[in-house]
Design a protein around this nucleic acid. Sequence first.
DNA 1: CAATAAATAACTGTTGACAGTTTATCGATG
DNA 2: CATCGATAAACTGTCAACAGTTATTTATTG
Lengths: 223, 223
Amino acid sequence: MQDDALSVRQNSTLSSLLAERIEVSILSGELAAGERINEAVLAKQYGVSRGPIREAARLLAAQGFVEFVANKGAFVREVSREDLLEIYDLRAVLTGHACRLAAKNKGGSLDALKALHHEMDAAARADAPEEYYRLNLAFHDALIALADSPRLAVMLQSLIKEAHLYRQVSLARHPDMAQSNVEHGKILAAIEKGDARAASREGEAHVRAGKERFEAAVAPKKN
Amino acid sequence: MQDDALSVRQNSTLSSLLAERIEVSILSGELAAGERINEAVLAKQYGVSRGPIREAARLLAAQGFVEFVANKGAFVREVSREDLLEIYDLRAVLTGHACRLAAKNKGGSLDALKALHHEMDAAARADAPEEYYRLNLAFHDALIALADSPRLAVMLQSLIKEAHLYRQVSLARHPDMAQSNVEHGKILAAIEKGDARAASREGEAHVRAGKERFEAAVAPKKN
DNA sequence: CAATAAATAACTGTTGACAGTTTATCGATG
DNA sequence: CATCGATAAACTGTCAACAGTTATTTATTG
């Protein structure tokens, strides 16, 4: 353990910190899809022994980032177009459920969501997709928090993370911002009214629309 | 590694085998909820060193069976009544989705499901709740397989497994068998017709009904 | 020169030992 | 006798070395 930043571990464990680091390497493409996770190399790189690396790999496997093959090691998961479509479907259903719960949950405040919605409007007008993308993630996070269902949160976060493994990420990340944010508005309105059924419908529709936007971007209709 | 049965490992890895063993110990109550997983004890018990036990524990943590606390170890997860209700809700939504996919999936055969439905009918008539319970699990497994969505399968299996951690298991396992199987029949009919919307509705309703049967059993209405 | 088999290197799986932290025990003290 | 603090035991976290498996390279042969 010679890396300074790594040695600052508060309540977190070493292997979970390593898992986060490796996750970043995977998402940044530093560790390419299909590539094997070389325990010795990573151990040297992070100045630790192979044990914690192995545990971190198991953690990443649980989150769907890598896949274990007996006696061959851990390999960075490849997410195909079909995988991504499956993920969209599951996200749609679960996001719908999250919105239903959010509508029923009187306790939570909608202020954060409204603010994000507003900011996204500005980002859409300014044609700033990077910014819009960042805010969009935050919006969905806030929505999930409002649903107040820990298992649902884990599932949705896991799906969102896994979607990031799709190689041609850019294709999936430049939606019609204006339209997307109109949908956000519908979700917000339904939640505010406490209309669980409408919230569920709009939440699910929003993700399905995202899926269709992605499909259109990847395989544009020719006619 | 002195345990014979354990040494017979085919394509599976040692830690995953250990995870299965420990899982059985947890579900059987041998390892009680809240109890710490003592690595040294388990290592001795299974005749392996602590490394594989630790990896197995991480695997179980991923599946939601245990929880890690830094420097204290892995603890068997406690599933409260509220947790179980949350699990029911998620299962309802995901089962609905599974049924929708099953209805759309023309490829799969419904024979296995129909056979199980029939057998459950017999079990219900014979008032054999243990048998019914076993068949019910198989029915839901077959349904999940028909949906042909690997991530959905993992999520649902994980929820079903986690539900087994609920202490007063008996309360959750003795539904109104006849009524439950009528609902299975509705699901089957909708899938056979290829009516995705109805299949989804019936699948979701079936699990929600199970939730209500559980709630009634745990906190019976007094009037 | 291509194909195959033996030898070698690289890597994962597993182990036992050591370090650091938490929990339990026991004695001192008010 | 209860409480607090020091001491010891138990346990998790980490490491380096060994064993077994897979992949690669090199030699051999038709």
